[in-house]
Simulated scan of single mutants.
Amino acid sequence: MPDFRPTILIPTYNTGPILRETVKSAIATGYPVRVVVDGSDDGSDACLTEFEGLKGFTLHRLPVNQGKGAAILFGIRAAEKDGFTHALAMDADGQHPADRILDYFRVGSEHPQAAVFGSPIFDASAPALRVGGRKISNFWANLETLGWGIDDSLFGMRLYPIRELISVLEETRFARRFDFDPEVAVRLCWKGVPVINLPTAVHYPSAEDGGISQFRYLRDNILLTWMHARLMIGFFIRAPWLAFRGDNPLLHLSPSVR
Protein backbone atom coordinates (compact mmCIF):
# COMPACT_ATOMS: atom_id res chain seq x y z
CA MET A 1 0.00 0.00 0.00
CA PRO A 2 1.30 3.51 -0.81
CA ASP A 3 2.75 5.62 1.99
CA PHE A 4 0.65 8.33 3.59
CA ARG A 5 2.59 11.30 4.94
CA PRO A 6 0.28 14.34 4.74
CA THR A 7 0.74 18.05 5.13
CA ILE A 8 -1.69 20.98 5.08
CA LEU A 9 -1.09 23.47 2.27
CA ILE A 10 -2.55 26.99 2.38
CA PRO A 11 -1.99 29.35 -0.57
CA THR A 12 -2.77 32.96 0.22
CA TYR A 13 -3.04 36.24 -1.65
CA ASN A 14 -4.13 39.47 0.06
CA THR A 15 -6.34 37.58 2.50
CA GLY A 16 -6.26 40.21 5.24
CA PRO A 17 -6.29 39.57 9.01
CA ILE A 18 -8.41 36.41 8.69
CA LEU A 19 -5.28 34.64 7.42
CA ARG A 20 -3.90 34.37 10.95
CA GLU A 21 -6.97 32.56 12.25
CA THR A 22 -7.00 30.16 9.31
CA VAL A 23 -3.36 29.23 9.80
CA LYS A 24 -3.72 29.02 13.58
CA SER A 25 -6.64 26.61 13.27
CA ALA A 26 -4.68 24.43 10.85
CA ILE A 27 -1.65 24.34 13.15
CA ALA A 28 -3.90 23.29 16.03
CA THR A 29 -4.55 19.95 14.27
CA GLY A 30 -0.96 18.95 15.04
CA TYR A 31 -0.14 18.22 11.41
CA PRO A 32 2.58 20.02 9.42
CA VAL A 33 1.37 23.24 7.82
CA ARG A 34 2.87 24.90 4.76
CA VAL A 35 1.78 28.39 3.69
CA VAL A 36 2.60 29.87 0.29
CA VAL A 37 2.23 33.66 0.21
CA ASP A 38 1.50 34.34 -3.45
CA GLY A 39 2.89 37.83 -3.87
CA SER A 40 0.62 39.47 -1.30
CA ASP A 41 1.05 43.23 -1.01
CA ASP A 42 -1.55 43.95 1.69
CA GLY A 43 0.78 43.11 4.58
CA SER A 44 -1.40 40.21 5.70
CA ASP A 45 1.54 37.81 5.78
CA ALA A 46 3.14 39.82 8.58
CA CYS A 47 0.88 37.99 11.02
CA LEU A 48 2.58 34.71 10.14
CA THR A 49 5.92 35.66 11.66
CA GLU A 50 4.63 34.56 15.06
CA PHE A 51 4.39 30.98 13.73
CA GLU A 52 7.86 30.86 12.22
CA GLY A 53 10.06 28.56 14.23
CA LEU A 54 7.19 26.30 15.21
CA LYS A 55 7.89 22.64 14.52
CA GLY A 56 6.11 21.58 11.35
CA PHE A 57 5.38 25.10 10.10
CA THR A 58 6.89 26.21 6.79
CA LEU A 59 6.42 29.60 5.14
CA HIS A 60 7.18 30.38 1.49
CA ARG A 61 6.93 33.84 -0.03
CA LEU A 62 6.64 34.26 -3.79
CA PRO A 63 7.83 37.68 -5.03
CA VAL A 64 4.90 38.30 -7.41
CA ASN A 65 1.34 36.99 -7.65
CA GLN A 66 1.22 33.92 -9.88
CA GLY A 67 -2.21 32.46 -9.10
CA LYS A 68 -3.58 29.76 -6.83
CA GLY A 69 -2.53 26.87 -9.04
CA ALA A 70 1.00 28.17 -9.39
CA ALA A 71 1.27 28.69 -5.62
CA ILE A 72 0.03 25.16 -4.95
CA LEU A 73 2.45 23.71 -7.49
CA PHE A 74 5.32 25.52 -5.76
CA GLY A 75 4.13 24.24 -2.39
CA ILE A 76 3.69 20.60 -3.38
CA ARG A 77 7.06 20.46 -5.10
CA ALA A 78 8.65 21.71 -1.88
CA ALA A 79 6.53 19.33 0.21
CA GLU A 80 7.54 16.34 -1.90
CA LYS A 81 11.19 17.22 -1.44
CA ASP A 82 10.54 17.21 2.31
CA GLY A 83 9.15 13.69 2.15
CA PHE A 84 5.39 14.32 2.13
CA THR A 85 3.12 12.18 -0.06
CA HIS A 86 -0.20 14.00 0.26
CA ALA A 87 -1.26 17.63 0.59
CA LEU A 88 -4.56 18.93 1.89
CA ALA A 89 -5.22 22.22 0.14
CA MET A 90 -7.48 24.68 1.92
CA ASP A 91 -8.29 28.31 1.26
CA ALA A 92 -6.86 31.02 3.47
CA ASP A 93 -10.05 33.08 3.62
CA GLY A 94 -11.88 31.21 6.36
CA GLN A 95 -14.33 29.32 4.11
CA HIS A 96 -12.98 25.85 4.84
CA PRO A 97 -13.44 24.24 8.28
CA ALA A 98 -10.23 23.17 10.00
CA ASP A 99 -12.23 20.77 12.17
CA ARG A 100 -12.78 18.65 9.06
CA ILE A 101 -9.06 18.18 8.33
CA LEU A 102 -8.72 15.04 10.44
CA ASP A 103 -11.60 13.44 8.54
CA TYR A 104 -9.83 14.08 5.23
CA PHE A 105 -6.66 12.52 6.63
CA ARG A 106 -8.56 9.52 7.96
CA VAL A 107 -10.08 8.83 4.56
CA GLY A 108 -6.76 9.50 2.86
CA SER A 109 -4.87 7.11 5.13
CA GLU A 110 -7.40 4.35 4.35
CA HIS A 111 -7.22 5.04 0.59
CA PRO A 112 -3.88 6.72 -0.16
CA GLN A 113 -4.26 6.10 -3.88
CA ALA A 114 -7.28 8.40 -3.98
CA ALA A 115 -7.93 12.12 -4.14
CA VAL A 116 -10.43 13.26 -1.51
CA PHE A 117 -12.59 16.10 -2.83
CA GLY A 118 -14.75 18.27 -0.62
CA SER A 119 -18.45 18.22 -1.45
CA PRO A 120 -19.70 21.56 -0.14
CA ILE A 121 -22.68 21.96 2.16
CA PHE A 122 -23.58 25.63 1.88
CA ASP A 123 -25.16 27.72 4.59
CA ALA A 124 -27.04 31.00 4.28
CA SER A 125 -23.78 32.94 3.87
CA ALA A 126 -23.17 31.49 0.40
CA PRO A 127 -23.86 33.90 -2.50
CA ALA A 128 -26.76 32.46 -4.51
CA LEU A 129 -25.09 33.42 -7.80
CA ARG A 130 -22.02 31.35 -7.01
CA VAL A 131 -23.98 28.38 -5.65
CA GLY A 132 -26.12 28.24 -8.77
CA GLY A 133 -23.36 29.09 -11.23
CA ARG A 134 -21.08 26.26 -10.15
CA LYS A 135 -23.66 23.75 -11.39
CA ILE A 136 -22.61 24.64 -14.93
CA SER A 137 -18.96 23.82 -14.26
CA ASN A 138 -19.97 20.63 -12.47
CA PHE A 139 -22.02 19.51 -15.47
CA TRP A 140 -19.10 19.97 -17.85
CA ALA A 141 -16.57 18.39 -15.50
CA ASN A 142 -18.70 15.26 -15.19
CA LEU A 143 -19.24 15.11 -18.95
CA GLU A 144 -15.49 15.49 -19.55
CA THR A 145 -14.78 12.57 -17.21
CA LEU A 146 -17.78 10.41 -18.17
CA GLY A 147 -19.17 10.59 -14.65
CA TRP A 148 -16.01 9.56 -12.80
CA GLY A 149 -17.52 11.14 -9.69
CA ILE A 150 -16.76 14.83 -9.12
CA ASP A 151 -19.43 16.17 -6.77
CA ASP A 152 -18.10 19.72 -7.00
CA SER A 153 -15.48 20.90 -9.47
CA LEU A 154 -14.82 24.26 -7.82
CA PHE A 155 -14.58 23.51 -4.11
CA GLY A 156 -10.98 24.03 -3.03
CA MET A 157 -10.69 21.90 0.11
CA ARG A 158 -9.14 18.72 -1.21
CA LEU A 159 -6.59 16.08 -0.26
CA TYR A 160 -4.30 15.35 -3.19
CA PRO A 161 -1.72 12.61 -3.76
CA ILE A 162 1.24 14.90 -4.44
CA ARG A 163 2.97 12.90 -7.14
CA GLU A 164 -0.18 12.64 -9.25
CA LEU A 165 -1.02 16.33 -8.83
CA ILE A 166 2.48 17.38 -9.88
CA SER A 167 2.16 15.13 -12.89
CA VAL A 168 -1.08 16.67 -14.17
CA LEU A 169 0.16 20.21 -13.57
CA GLU A 170 3.38 19.53 -15.44
CA GLU A 171 1.36 18.30 -18.42
CA THR A 172 -0.35 21.67 -18.91
CA ARG A 173 0.64 25.31 -18.76
CA PHE A 174 -2.89 26.15 -17.65
CA ALA A 175 -4.61 25.52 -14.28
CA ARG A 176 -2.51 28.19 -12.64
CA ARG A 177 -5.24 30.61 -11.52
CA PHE A 178 -9.00 30.32 -10.88
CA ASP A 179 -9.10 27.44 -13.34
CA PHE A 180 -6.90 25.31 -11.03
CA ASP A 181 -9.57 23.43 -9.06
CA PRO A 182 -11.79 22.26 -11.94
CA GLU A 183 -8.98 21.57 -14.39
CA VAL A 184 -6.88 19.42 -12.07
CA ALA A 185 -10.02 17.57 -10.98
CA VAL A 186 -10.73 16.60 -14.58
CA ARG A 187 -7.12 15.74 -15.36
CA LEU A 188 -6.74 13.57 -12.26
CA CYS A 189 -9.86 11.68 -13.33
CA TRP A 190 -8.43 11.26 -16.82
CA LYS A 191 -5.41 9.62 -15.21
CA GLY A 192 -7.67 7.19 -13.37
CA VAL A 193 -7.02 8.57 -9.88
CA PRO A 194 -9.93 7.38 -7.72
CA VAL A 195 -12.03 10.19 -6.24
CA ILE A 196 -13.82 10.09 -2.90
CA ASN A 197 -16.18 12.99 -2.13
CA LEU A 198 -16.36 14.13 1.48
CA PRO A 199 -19.32 16.33 2.54
CA THR A 200 -17.90 19.51 4.02
CA ALA A 201 -19.63 22.55 5.48
CA VAL A 202 -18.56 25.82 3.89
CA HIS A 203 -19.04 29.30 5.28
CA TYR A 204 -18.44 32.62 3.54
CA PRO A 205 -17.25 35.11 6.18
CA SER A 206 -18.83 38.53 5.83
CA ALA A 207 -16.78 41.65 5.21
CA GLU A 208 -17.40 42.62 8.84
CA ASP A 209 -15.79 39.33 9.90
CA GLY A 210 -12.79 39.89 7.64
CA GLY A 211 -13.99 37.93 4.63
CA ILE A 212 -12.27 38.86 1.37
CA SER A 213 -13.03 37.31 -2.02
CA GLN A 214 -10.65 37.33 -4.98
CA PHE A 215 -13.41 36.03 -7.28
CA ARG A 216 -14.17 38.33 -10.22
CA TYR A 217 -17.38 37.28 -11.92
CA LEU A 218 -16.70 38.29 -15.54
CA ARG A 219 -12.96 37.56 -15.60
CA ASP A 220 -13.17 34.19 -13.90
CA ASN A 221 -16.22 32.95 -15.80
CA ILE A 222 -14.50 33.77 -19.08
CA LEU A 223 -11.50 31.79 -17.83
CA LEU A 224 -13.73 28.82 -16.91
CA THR A 225 -15.50 28.91 -20.29
CA TRP A 226 -12.17 28.81 -22.12
CA MET A 227 -10.96 26.04 -19.81
CA HIS A 228 -13.95 23.78 -20.47
CA ALA A 229 -13.62 24.39 -24.22
CA ARG A 230 -10.03 23.16 -24.02
CA LEU A 231 -10.94 20.20 -21.83
CA MET A 232 -13.70 19.13 -24.22
CA ILE A 233 -11.09 18.79 -26.96
CA GLY A 234 -9.05 16.60 -24.61
CA PHE A 235 -12.18 14.65 -23.76
CA PHE A 236 -12.96 13.81 -27.39
CA ILE A 237 -9.40 12.54 -27.86
CA ARG A 238 -9.66 10.34 -24.75
CA ALA A 239 -13.34 9.36 -25.03
CA PRO A 240 -12.86 5.79 -26.34
CA TRP A 241 -10.41 4.95 -23.54
CA LEU A 242 -12.53 6.67 -20.89
CA ALA A 243 -15.56 4.64 -21.96
CA PHE A 244 -13.58 1.40 -21.91
CA ARG A 245 -11.90 1.74 -18.53
CA GLY A 246 -15.02 1.47 -16.37
CA ASP A 247 -16.16 3.45 -13.33
CA ASN A 248 -14.34 5.09 -10.45
CA PRO A 249 -13.58 2.09 -8.18
CA LEU A 250 -14.11 4.09 -4.97
CA LEU A 251 -17.21 6.03 -5.93
CA HIS A 252 -19.33 3.93 -3.58
CA LEU A 253 -17.43 5.44 -0.65
CA SER A 254 -18.80 8.93 -1.32
CA PRO A 255 -21.84 9.65 0.87
CA SER A 256 -24.64 11.52 -0.78
CA VAL A 257 -25.30 15.10 0.32
CA ARG A 258 -28.14 15.68 -2.11
Rank of each mutant, 00 (worst) to 15 (best):
I121T: 10
L59K: 08
A71Q: 02
S40P: 08
V37E: 11
G83E: 04
D82P: 01
F139V: 08
V37K: 03
I101D: 01
H96V: 08
R34N: 09
L88P: 00
Y104C: 03
T22W: 09
K24G: 13
G118P: 11
V116R: 06
F105K: 04
E52L: 09
I72P: 02
W148D: 07
T22V: 11
D45F: 13
G94R: 01
A114M: 06
G53W: 15
Q113Y: 07
A126H: 01
R77K: 07
Y104D: 04
A70D: 11
T22G: 05
L48D: 13
R100C: 07
K135T: 10
D103F: 04
G147C: 04
D45Y: 12
L102Y: 03
T49A: 15
F74R: 14
D38L: 12
F57N: 12
E80T: 01
L146M: 09
A124Q: 13
I136F: 14
C47G: 11
A70L: 09
G94D: 00
G75A: 01
H111I: 00
S125V: 00
A87S: 08
S125H: 01
D45G: 13
T29N: 01
F74C: 09
V36F: 06
G147R: 03
G30E: 09
M90Q: 04
P32F: 03
P63S: 11
T15V: 13
P63A: 07
V131W: 05
R61G: 12
F84H: 14
S25Q: 15
P127G: 05
G75M: 01
L59C: 06
G147W: 10
I136H: 10
Q95H: 10
H86Q: 06
I27F: 10
H111S: 09
D99E: 08
V35C: 06
S137H: 10
P32A: 09
K81L: 14
L19E: 04
R134Y: 05
D82V: 01
R100V: 10
L102T: 13
E21S: 14
P97V: 12
T49Y: 15
A87Q: 03
F84M: 05
L143E: 13
L19Q: 06
E80G: 05
S109I: 04
E52W: 05
S109K: 15
L19S: 07
D91F: 01
P97W: 11
A87W: 03
L143D: 05
H111D: 08
I121A: 12
G94I: 00
S40A: 13
G108M: 02
P112V: 03
P112S: 11
N138W: 10
I121K: 08
G30K: 09
L129A: 14
D91K: 02
S25N: 15
A141K: 01
D99W: 06
D82R: 00
L19P: 06
T145V: 02
G43K: 04
G69A: 02
A115N: 07
G67S: 03
D123P: 08
P32S: 08
F105C: 05
K24S: 15
Q113A: 14
R100E: 08
A78E: 14
F57I: 05
V33Y: 13
A126S: 08
L143P: 00
